[in-house]
Amino acid sequence: MSIWKYLFNLEERRNWWTRKMPDGPLRDYYATPFPDREIDWRQADYLAIDFETTGLEASQDQILSVGYATVRGDRLVLGDATHILIRPTVDIPEASAVVHGILDDEAAEAQPLEEVLPVILNALKGKALLAHHAAIEYEFLNHACRNLYGYPFLCPVVDTLALEVRQFRMRDQAIRSGDLRLAKARARYGLPRYPAHNALTDALAAGELFLAQVAYRSSSKPPRLKDLIVVS
C-alpha cells in the first residue's frame, strides 16, 4: 500500500478519487460517503461478505462466488441476502474445488465478474465491509476494481478475525493454531455450527460473529465505528 493512507484519512481519499474518476460503477460507489467513523456502531450499516476463490492470491486467483447480507446496527437482516456465482476465466483448480464445491460446469453457467462487481459495489454503498479475515475480500475487490476500472478500491473494513485477535490480546491469552478460524471463534460465543465454505453461509456466519463480538466488548459504553474498523 502507498504512504497516502498515512497522510490522508479514508474519507479524504474517497473524495480525491471521486473527483478524478470517470463515470462508472466504481464512481457511483464512491459517490456515497462512507459511514462516519465517530458514530455509535449501532448507527452504521455493514455488509457481511465472503468470497469463495480459486486460491488466496488476489493477484493470480479468481473469485468464484460471493455471498453477502446487511448488518444494520445490531441486527443482521436477511432480506437482501444474496449469493452469486462468478464465471472464472480459467479452469477451477481441483485443490480449491474440493473446498468450495463449485465445479466447472456450474461456474460456466455463472455471470462474468464485470457483471457481478457493480452489484457488489452497489450493495457496499455507504457501508463498512465486514468479513472474517477481511484482507482477502478487500484485496480481491481491490484487484478487480483496478483490473476492470483502473482505480483502487477503498472501504472502511471491519475484520472479525482482527477483533478476535484483539480479544485474545486483551485477555493476554495465547493464540493457538486454529483458534481464529471462523467456526472455532463462533463456538466461543455459543453460536451454532453452520456448514462451512459456502460464500453466503460464511458471510452470515461472520455477521453473527460480529454481533457477538460487539456484545462481548467489556466497556460499558457502546463502541463507535472507529473502535471496530481496521486501519486501511
Partner: peptide, 14 residues
C-alpha cells in the same frame, strides 16, 4: 420467511 427475519445476538444476562 427467512428473508423477513432479522438475526440478533444477546449476550448472557441481557
Amino acid at each position: 420467511v427467512p428473508a423477513l427475519l432479522q438475526v440478533r445476538y444477546f449476550r448472557r444476562g441481557t
